Amino acid sequence: MSKVLSIKMVVIGLTGGSGCGKGYICKIFSDFGIKSADADKIYHDIVSIPDSPCLAELSGYFGSEILKPDGSLNRSKLSQIVFASGAEKKLKYLNETTHKYVLNDCRKWLAERKADGDEIALIDAPMLFESGFDKECDFVISIIADYDQRVKRLKERDGITETQIKARINVQHTDNFFKDNSDYIILNNDGLDIRGQISEILHDIRLKTNGTKDIFSGGDNWQSN
């Protein structure tokens, strides 16, 4: 994917499969002075607000039993209903509904970043492609990692078995999908120079955004030490 842009604020979409280390990568971007919004956290915040418009739509479709007594989402009950018979149709509705609200909040956050004068902002979204938000990003960066690395991380983080991990990974996009649909790839295996990879990506983005050396306030601080 080749792009040359002349824009005031660069929007980066960051994605990748489970166990690839999106949170860790966001922390490194933060070291470069780049703020990020976590789409997963936005989703959890939305469904934790009793009587929110999102929950009103979901309960109208799936039934009021998906709500806790305080009006927030009962995630386990929703999962039981969604993944029962006819899961494909119900999952499609769930994703379309929640994506709508999550993306709306992402757009508000980006508008705030632009109003604050930020020159680059990052959206961390595991469902970036599924939601269609990749089309609203100037650049897409996908994180990949070797299978063994992902298994190790997910076992430590989530305490689940390799069988469960394999089932999760098998329904997610492949590395080849990410390579074919992204502007940049970060290989996040242990022992690699991740900061150096990110520095090179940011340098290339700087060149593609009109080739202006100081288009971002990070300037030469983007170069790896």
Rank of each mutant, 00 (worst) to 15 (best):
T15C: 10
N189T: 04
I165Q: 07
K166F: 14
S182W: 03
F32Q: 00
K179L: 12
A145I: 03
E130R: 07
I141Q: 01
F216Y: 15
S36R: 02
K89A: 14
I185Y: 12
F83C: 04
F177D: 06
G159M: 00
H203A: 14
V10A: 12
R206W: 11
L154T: 01
K8L: 05
G19C: 01
I123G: 10
I186R: 06
Q197E: 09
S64Y: 09
F133L: 07
D40L: 01
C26Y: 09
E130S: 09
S52K: 06
L110T: 04
M1A: 11
L128E: 13
Y43N: 04
A87F: 14
R206I: 04
Q223W: 14
T161F: 14
G191T: 07
G211M: 15
F133V: 03
A111T: 07
E200F: 15
M127D: 06
F83H: 08
N95S: 03
K100S: 07
S224H: 15
K68M: 04
I120D: 00
P126Q: 10
Q172T: 01
H203E: 15
C26F: 08
D31S: 09
L103D: 13
P69R: 08
D148S: 08
A56M: 07
D70W: 09
L73F: 11
I198W: 08
G17K: 06
L55A: 00
Y93F: 15
D183F: 03
C20F: 02
T212K: 15
K3I: 00
L128I: 08
F178P: 04
Y24A: 12
K179M: 04
N170L: 05
F139R: 00
I49C: 07
D118V: 09
F178H: 04
T161D: 08
G117P: 06
M9V: 02
D190V: 14
K135G: 07
A56P: 00
A145M: 04
Q149N: 06
A167E: 11
P69N: 02
T161M: 10
D158F: 10
I215D: 14
Q80C: 09
F129C: 03
E162N: 12
L110H: 08
A167M: 09
K179N: 02
L58E: 04
A37Y: 08
I144N: 05
E156N: 08
K35L: 07
D158L: 02
T209Q: 15
C137E: 01
K208I: 13
G86F: 11
I201A: 12
S142R: 05
R157A: 01
T97A: 11
Q80E: 09
E65M: 11
T161K: 10
L58N: 01
D220T: 06
K114Y: 14
K155D: 00
G219A: 09
Y61H: 11
E200L: 15
N188T: 09
S18W: 02
A39D: 05
N170P: 07
I185E: 06
D183V: 01
S182R: 05
R195V: 09
D183Y: 00
I7R: 10
K3L: 11
